[in-house]
Amino acid sequence: MRVFTHNVIEVTNETRYYISSLNETAQEIAERIRGYWGVENKVHYVRDVTQAEDASRIRTTPLPQIFTLSRNFSLNLYRDNMFKNMAQAQRLCSFGLDTLKRLFRMK
């Protein structure tokens, strides 16, 4: 884990212990755990932080489901256009309709 404090990087190591009834090697279990965190970091974190989904005050059905669809659609659209940084893609696309037309290939 890297901790940033006043432009100084402090590197620390953490040990995690897992108890499992799975009939897998330690390497296979480690890959499962990394896979889980890959999804968490790629999708859930972006939706929670970049798109502020948890802060949304939309509660009336079916609006939460519609907004979830639109957030997922925008993430897929950004990734399809080779964006690596979703916050940067969101800022770029919020600049205007012309940017969105280019992403949708509607020049």
Rank of each mutant, 00 (worst) to 15 (best):
L69G: 05
S74K: 12
L63E: 05
T68C: 11
F73Q: 03
Y45C: 05
K101M: 02
Q90N: 09
A55S: 15
L69C: 13
R91Q: 15
K101A: 04
E31D: 12
V49S: 11
E40A: 01
S70D: 06
N72G: 12
D80N: 03
A52W: 00
Q90E: 10
L69V: 01
A55H: 10
R34V: 02
F67G: 01
Q51H: 09
I58S: 03
L63Q: 13
R59N: 15
L63N: 05
I33V: 14
S56D: 12
G96P: 00
K101T: 00
P64Y: 06
D54K: 10
F95E: 07
I66T: 04
R91S: 13
Q65C: 09
I66W: 10
T61N: 03
K84R: 13
S56Q: 00
Q88E: 02
R32Q: 11
P62M: 13
D80R: 06
N76S: 07
Q51F: 09
L63H: 14
G38M: 10
D54E: 07
H44Y: 09
Y45E: 02
F73P: 00
M86G: 08
L69Y: 14
Y78C: 06
I33H: 04
K84D: 10
K42A: 11
K84E: 13
L92A: 02
T60V: 11
A87Q: 09
T50C: 09
G38Q: 04
A89L: 01
K42H: 01
L63Y: 11
R32P: 02
N81P: 01
D80P: 01
D98A: 10
A89K: 00
A52D: 13
D48C: 02
T99D: 02
S94M: 07
T60I: 04
Y36E: 13
L97V: 09
Y36R: 04
R47P: 05
S94H: 14
K42C: 11
Y78M: 08
F83Y: 15
